[in-house]
Design a binder for these strands. Structure first.
Length: 360
DNA sequence: ACACCGTACAGTACACGACC
DNA sequence: GGTCGTGTACTGTACGGTGT
């Protein structure tokens, strides 16, 4: 048999004949064995003799064949080795958010241990369906679903799904107790400082601009984590006999420095000025402390500030931030482990920790 | 023009046959 | 009877052929 000329993964059998694409079938035909034998040589070495396997692998390498095609394999097996993290925000926002970042890192660690890959999907697409949804073997929904149709399609697909920082009736969730944690840090702040209270809240209402919430929006049955944090603040205020009216609660649409600055400037230029600032994220709290510095407000003598999340920057900032550490990386690891184990049972509440530093 | 059907695609999994 | 290797059903989608 005359060896065909090899050119970048194709076999040119003769000058006039169309080059054959290198795949399992053409390689098997060239080597004089069946497609199954070549497949077995790569994937099930116990199914053939070591001598034959070695010969096949050697000749495949000479031909420039790198082994079975991944797309075809996933077509046949119905598995891709990919877990998707479905983000409630845009990809750009999520990869720049330190909390989401920590969470993704935690998920990635576990997937790597299992030889799996991760796909980041944004729930902010308005497409009716996405081919990317068909690829993953399992899904982690991170945050409140922003595209209910997409979520329904995923649930309907029957693939394993777990939610984090979000509760759905029929899907297992991994959360921290946002209500208790918020109540605890608010109690701590109230004990440290008397006077007026303000809340810099995150995504409390459906609005894409910074604003204060209306009195009728103060109490809600909504299950979003920000609402539970607000409920925790309100419970602490009631317990400690502190006033927390709707006009002292700011809504910030996105957890960015820019939006937080706008809200913090509004809150800290009120008269009378608040002396307790409860922030629903560390990023918001850090922006608020920067505004306080601009305005010559001393922390913690004139104003106490608390955050939520426990990002690294909160520790490095001066004054360092009192916050709730919710260990997002561990949350990511836990969610990924549960998902891969297939043991999707009852909701899991993970511990959070009050970290007292200089700001309160 | 449209609907419908059959086949090819690439690889896996399993049942089964050949051979020592 | 055990080992080794083969034949074939199967997967979802695209595409070509056929019939209406």
């Amino acid at each position: 048999m005359i060896k065909p000329e090899l050119k970048q993964g194709v076999m040119a059998v003769s000058a006039t004949e169309k080059p054959k694409k290198l795949n399992l079938k053409t390689v098997a035909s060239y080597l004089g064995v069946s497609v199954a034998t070549v497949s077995n040589a790569y994937n099930r070495p116990d199914q053939l003799s070591p001598e034959l396997r070695q010969r096949i692998l050697l000749q495949c390498a000479e031909l420039g064949y790198d082994g079975p095609n991944a797309a075809a394999r996933s077509l046949r097996t119905g598995r891709s080795g990919i877990v998707a993290v479905l983000l409630s925000d845009t990809l750009e926002y999520s990869v720049s958010d330190p909390v989401a970042n920590q969470f993704i890192k935690g998920v990635a660690e576990v997937l790597q241990e299992h030889g799996m890959d991760m796909l980041l999907l944004s729930g902010r697409h308005n497409t009716s369906s996405s081919s990317a949804e068909a690829v993953p073997d399992a899904f982690i929904l991170y945050g409140a679903p922003s595209n209910p149709e997409q979520l329904q399609r995923i649930i309907k697909s029957g693939k394993p799904l777990i939610t984090v920082d979000c509760n759905l009736d029929t899907v297992m969730s991994v959360n921290v107790d946002n209500y208790a944690a918020a109540q605890r840090i608010a109690e701590h702040a109230f004990k440290k400082m008397p006077g007026k209270v303000a809340v810099l809240g995150l995504r409390l209402i459906e609005s894409d601009r910074v604003c204060r919430i209306q009195p009728h929006e103060l109490y809600s049955t909504e299950q979003a984590i920000s609402r539970r944090r607000l409920d925790g603040y309100l419970a602490a205020a009631q317990e400690q006999g502190r006033e927390l009216p709707a006009n002292a609660v700011w809504h910030i649409p996105l957890n960015t420095h820019h939006f937080a600055l706008v809200a913090a400037r509004e809150a800290l230029t009120q008269y009378p000025r608040p002396s307790v600032l409860l922030c629903m994220s560390d990023r918001i709290a850090l922006a608020a402390m920067a505004v306080a510095r601009e305005l010559g407000i001393n922390i913690p003598d004139d104003l106490v500030v608390v955050g939520f999340d426990g990002i690294e920057e909160a520790e490095r900032f001066y004054p360092s931030l009192t916050t709730i550490a919710q260990h997002s990386d561990e949350k990511g690891r836990t969610a990924a482990r549960i998902l891969l184990s297939g043991d999707l049972g009852t909701d899991l509440v993970m511990p959070s920790e009050l970290i007292i530093r200089q700001s309160c």
